[in-house]
Design a binder for these strands. Sequence first.
DNA 1: ATAAAAATTTAGACAAATCTAAAAAAATAT
DNA 2: ATATTTTTTTAGATTTGTCTAAATTTTTAT
Lengths: 220, 220
Amino acid sequence: MDNYSFTEENYIKAIYHLETKGDVANTNKLADAMQTRAASVTDMLKKLKRKKLVTYKPYYGCNLTPRGKSLALLIIRRHRLWEFFLSEKLGFNWQEVHDVAEELEHVGSEKLINKLDEFLGYPKVDPHGDPIPDFKGNMVEPEQFSLAGYTLNKSGIVVKIGEQSPALLEVLEQKKIGIGSRIKVLQKADFDQSMEIKINNKHTAHISKVLAENIFIKIV
Amino acid sequence: MDNYSFTEENYIKAIYHLETKGDVANTNKLADAMQTRAASVTDMLKKLKRKKLVTYKPYYGCNLTPRGKSLALLIIRRHRLWEFFLSEKLGFNWQEVHDVAEELEHVGSEKLINKLDEFLGYPKVDPHGDPIPDFKGNMVEPEQFSLAGYTLNKSGIVVKIGEQSPALLEVLEQKKIGIGSRIKVLQKADFDQSMEIKINNKHTAHISKVLAENIFIKIV
DNA sequence: ATAAAAATTTAGACAAATCTAAAAAAATAT
DNA sequence: ATATTTTTTTAGATTTGTCTAAATTTTTAT
């Protein structure tokens, strides 16, 4: 695999994320994502095109070539493996892992990342519930379920909140449940479907059926 | 702690290593260490002086300021902790760890490096036998001697290889001598200072004076 | 002590990634 | 369909770390 600068890698990653969100990666969106100016983006897109990582059409935007896409997946693989390492082995909170992984993801050694993968036991999902590509770039988007359908002792990561009402958000805030929280079902009451859950392996909470129906979990 | 570029950090590290070797870090030696030209070094030294990391005297060379020295020790701490991690946790050979650690050492998070230190059990020495500075920058130089100075029937554990040339590493590989090997001196020839040694109580080897001078042993 | 050699610095240039300001193209509104 | 607004590109400048070639200082040798 060739060698790319931090900046190039970050552009490729940003383009990938825009594409998978269904958007075309155009100049202004990229400038926004990269915290830079449109003119700088234009320059970079021309360069990435020269390097055959994207197809670039002036006044339109760009798409990743197959080469660009595998580079993106490699960087995402590195990022998410490091996030897993930081969380699992070094005891970082899931909120803290992103910024550090943002730096570690640019360390290029192929052997490093594959050995790390092995050391971590080939995890499928990072601490935010996002899937980790394997060494070939394949990843399995984990299925998400409402917490209400969960059975005892199953755990996962909160990836979505159903209803966006202020009342619901307030309850979640109060119980310290948010996107990324790791939740494990401890007890379930048959008569009203309420449940006792453990949040981030730290504190427990009791939540009603209605609340559980609005919390969506990815299995980890 | 402030933020420095990869290049600045690498210069600081090179200056530190020259200083501890007893040399004055002058332009040509630095150009050699940094694989660059003298003119580039001059530019950089002026910059490092502006940043108060070195004292620089034209036509003489430079010395690290206290700030510069603690930065150097921090980078060395990162480097050696990562080497330990790669060797101990990911199963890299001690010859392979250096280049990867060279990249990892520039990841700046203070929390990362202190958590890593904790995770590794606060190791005192890296896979090459070099001491790891603690979070304050203190390190204990382990007592070690060149094998060349050894007398008959004395034995110890290989903790460091002096010169890092591929030619030397190849000989060591071939004779199955590595960091951690237990070595006992069986015979010594007066006329050329070559010696017969036993390695790991298993096989014997004949090694020249020059080779012996590059093998450092810790008495056990 | 003076000339020759070696080491170092200065001057001016370059590539990468960025910027601002102005020009050009595309989208939108009347 | 034409004018206005938005988006994007171009042109030219800036910063960082590098380079070559020439000038300068220091060291070494006679």
